[in-house]
Design a binder for these strands. Sequence first.
DNA 1: GCGCACTACGTACGGTGTACGTAACTACGA
DNA 2: TCGTAGTTACGTACACCGTACGTAGTGCGC
Lengths: 238, 238
Amino acid sequence: MAGRAAEPEVIWARPERTGRGPRPAYTRADIAAAAVRIADTEGLDAVSMRRVAAELGCGTMSLYNYVPRKEDLYELMVDAAGGEHELWEPGGDWRADMLRVAHQTRALMHRHPWLPRLMSPVYGFSPNALRYLEHCLACLDPLPEPYGTKLELIAMLNGIVTTYVTNELATDERTRSLPWSQERENAMRIAYLGGRVATGEYPRMAAAFAEDAGPIDLEAVFERALGRLLDGFDHSRR
Amino acid sequence: MAGRAAEPEVIWARPERTGRGPRPAYTRADIAAAAVRIADTEGLDAVSMRRVAAELGCGTMSLYNYVPRKEDLYELMVDAAGGEHELWEPGGDWRADMLRVAHQTRALMHRHPWLPRLMSPVYGFSPNALRYLEHCLACLDPLPEPYGTKLELIAMLNGIVTTYVTNELATDERTRSLPWSQERENAMRIAYLGGRVATGEYPRMAAAFAEDAGPIDLEAVFERALGRLLDGFDHSRR
DNA sequence: GCGCACTACGTACGGTGTACGTAACTACGA
DNA sequence: TCGTAGTTACGTACACCGTACGTAGTGCGC
């Protein structure tokens, strides 16, 4: 044999079962579920090959029969989470349908806070990603644009959702895992920013902070962002 | 002493020099520059506390005098990169100015491909982040909206830029570091997707792939995305 | 029924972040 | 002026990581 090349193939391209040898003790779904369970309860950093193997009840290196590299384990996780998208029959109002998609994605990411970090290397072509894409395209059937444009819309929407949820998650993370209270933290941040801003180098930032906005409503911010984004594709509205 | 609490303070809040003890051998700028140099030439994964210390020429644990946690090293890196933003006197056309900002950010991320990954936990409040924000707000002076809205615009723009550049980087990464040619890779992807799509489960995906679009022009895609986003804030255009 | 491809898994290697202890040094309070 | 407290510097050590490799056992395809 001429030295089989390293095979960084996408995991979805290799069959789950070849038919030769003993029948595998676990399915990809089992493995993904175990990893997701760990990530949900102990955080993404707790997901190690050893830990997942232990969760499954097998030796560490046995995992490598199913998952050539850790990165592929991550792909399984993302796909498993993507499987939780519930798809519906589009109703003919593409704006409403895409808003619903976005809200669902956001909810999904809040349920699995590790998702945005793992999705950053692009929404791949896993089975559930394909289903999701197909569903989005179905929602966009009423939009009179070529598929290229529709795919761009989907990409932008996913990007915005990911961005916003990442920020939301970072915020709660910070307020949750701090050794002091949220008021103390806020006070510190204000004090620090105040000190910075008081130098006079950032007059507009100062004005922005002075602008009495009341407590920010993250939901409303998210909704506005979605609306403005869709406006950019909605020629009937301009 | 009542057990000093762990101090997950933002690194920018602690002074670089207290005045007590021997004078430090390096500045934060030195450290950030060393880490950035490593990340640029050897990739982000090569940035370890040991490697950075070696680059500086000091013992590993000495680094911890400057940087309490590795995460703070990352903050230094992001701030250092942010310092490369060249700021100009806004010209009165906020659309043009914001487009220029976006293009500059994109160029910055291409120069430092590790940036998007490190920026995902939100654009913080490092000195250069504040300068950048202030500059964006200055560009938006002609836009008759409250600061809250302007900050939302900036957030969305950064989100979209990050999303797009991340995709671009993932694409070149894949095409660069593969053991086989790009044609081979493309052929494999087409074959895999073709097989998937041929099941008939994804008719719209099939149509999308069939749609003859020629080679996709990433620049143009980026430009269109920016335009559509800004449209959502440009009430004079509707 | 032979052989081969597959499963299972223990060991080991080189790496990681960082807690902790020690020694030298300097600016401040007395 | 002098102690002393707070810093810097850094070696050692620990727990953990991903995974290369070797070996043993298993069951399907020929």
